[in-house]
Simulated assay, not measured.
Amino acid sequence: MRAFLALVPPLEVIEQLDDVLAPRRDALAPRGEWRWSRPEHRHVTLAFLLELDDWREEALVEAGQRWADRTAPTRLSLRGAGAFPDPGAARVLWAGVDEEVPGTLEHWARSLRALASRAGGRVDGTRFLPHVTLARSVGGPRAAGHLLQALDTVETSAWTAEEVCLVRSELGQGPGGTPRHTVLHRWTLARS
């Protein structure tokens, strides 16, 4: 299965993000050029598993629990925007993550990628940059500088990230051919 380990912002943060996105999206992004992420798909991916055999899920859940038992929650907010690979030829638009303790999520991502790999998952090793995906281009890269200028005003209230989720991702199985995301497990971060 395809899966990822992620932080899911609380509903009020997702609603704040939607309040900023709606007028900008409708005014600046012609229909059909961008596929905007559904609110229930907004998350911060810490580790993406290209493949995880179903029978290895239990080992991953156990390793994740040991990690969560020794990991303290952290405060985050969403702030600013960017594009992958760059604004001139964007495929993905994203909101940035502002960390109360800089580097925390990078450390978490390294640890979670390593434990997922040890549990038998095939882990994507691309460079980690904490973000929430807002939109994907349709039909190839697009210039997005005007969108990023408008989206740079994204700013949400802070929240405490107290749990990490293991999420199954089934491409094309959701509404309108979007992915279907199913939370398989939640680890509550225990150390304070």
Rank of each mutant, 00 (worst) to 15 (best):
T71P: 11
T104M: 06
R91C: 11
A109V: 02
D53K: 07
G64V: 00
L49H: 00
A135P: 08
T156P: 06
P130C: 06
L148P: 00
W94P: 01
H107D: 15
A72E: 14
G64M: 05
C165F: 11
R79F: 03
E40M: 03
R91P: 10
H146K: 08
S169V: 12
G140I: 11
R79D: 07
A47S: 14
R79H: 06
L171N: 00
D69L: 14
L105V: 10
L134F: 02
V123I: 12
D54H: 03
P85R: 04
L171G: 03
R168M: 07
P141G: 15
E170P: 00
A47M: 09
W34G: 09
P102M: 07
P179T: 12
P102G: 07
E62Y: 00
C165L: 15
E51Y: 13
A83Y: 02
A116Y: 00
W108L: 11
P130A: 13
R168E: 13
R56C: 06
V132L: 14
L112Q: 11
E62W: 00
R168H: 09
A114F: 08
D53N: 07
A63T: 02
Q65S: 14
V92T: 15
L46S: 08
G139R: 11
A47I: 12
V164D: 08
Q65T: 15
D152H: 12
F48H: 02
E170I: 13
A83H: 06
R142I: 05
A143N: 13
S117T: 14
V138Q: 13
V138I: 15
P175H: 02
E155G: 12
D98F: 00
G176E: 14
G96T: 08
H131Y: 05
T156H: 04
A161F: 02
A144R: 08
P39M: 04
T156Q: 02
L105D: 02
V132G: 01
L60W: 00
V154G: 00
A150Q: 11
S117H: 13
T160L: 05
E58H: 05
W159V: 11
A63P: 08
A114N: 10
A47E: 05
L171W: 07
E163L: 03
G82V: 09
S169H: 10
D98M: 04
A59V: 01
E58A: 13
W67F: 15
T153M: 11
P102L: 08
A158W: 14
P175G: 03
L134H: 00
A161H: 05
E163V: 03
W36A: 09
G176H: 01
P179A: 13
E51C: 01
D54E: 15
D152S: 13
L112N: 09
G120T: 11
Q173F: 05
G120L: 01
G145H: 14
L171A: 12
S157F: 04
A135N: 09
V154K: 04
R42Q: 15
V101C: 06
G64S: 07
R75H: 09
T178V: 01
G139H: 12
R113D: 01
R38T: 13
P141S: 15
R70W: 05
V92E: 12
V61D: 01
G80C: 06
R110G: 10
E51V: 04
A81V: 04
G172V: 12
L60N: 07
G139V: 14
C165V: 12
A81I: 08
R118M: 03
